[in-house]
């Protein structure tokens, strides 16, 4: 009952820092726009190449230069970047067994 009351109160309390949130959201958006390019790979494009990209990275090749559009997409897309990191972790672990 107390939990329900707190939940309802949280809904009706005025929101704090609305202007700070608007600033932060605008900054977030402008940072993304600043990085936007005419030509970008999509998530599917990067998914198709990421296994090759990670193997090249593991071999010490200069992937940022060899596959710049993949690198750029990884900088822009959190979801694909996570998958890149997980795949890198998989290959690092594979070498230990």
């Amino acid at each position: 009952m107390k939990r329900l009351f707190e939940k309802i109160m949280n809904w009706i309390r005025p929101k704090k820092n609305l202007s700070a949130n608007s600033s932060a959201m605008t900054v977030q958006l402008l940072q993304t726009l600043a990085m936007t390019k005419e030509e970008e790979y999509s998530c599917d494009d990067v998914h198709n190449l990421i296994d090759e990209y990670v193997e090249m990275k593991r071999r010490g090749e200069d992937v940022e230069k060899l596959m710049p559009l993949v690198k750029y997409h990884l900088d822009m897309c959190r979801g694909c970047f996570d998958e890149y990191e997980a795949l890198l972790a998989a290959l690092e672990f594979e070498e230990t067994i």
Binding site: L49, D51, V54, G79, E83, A86, L87, A90, L91, E94
Partner: peptide, 21 residues
């Protein structure tokens, strides 16, 4: 274009992280 197992891991992390996110 990669080792077959790397290709398989790629699919695995895509599925796993999709769920976790």
């Amino acid at each position: 274009r990669s080792k077959f197992t790397t290709w398989v891991y790629k699919i695995g992390v895509n599925i796993g992280l999709g769920e976790l996110r």
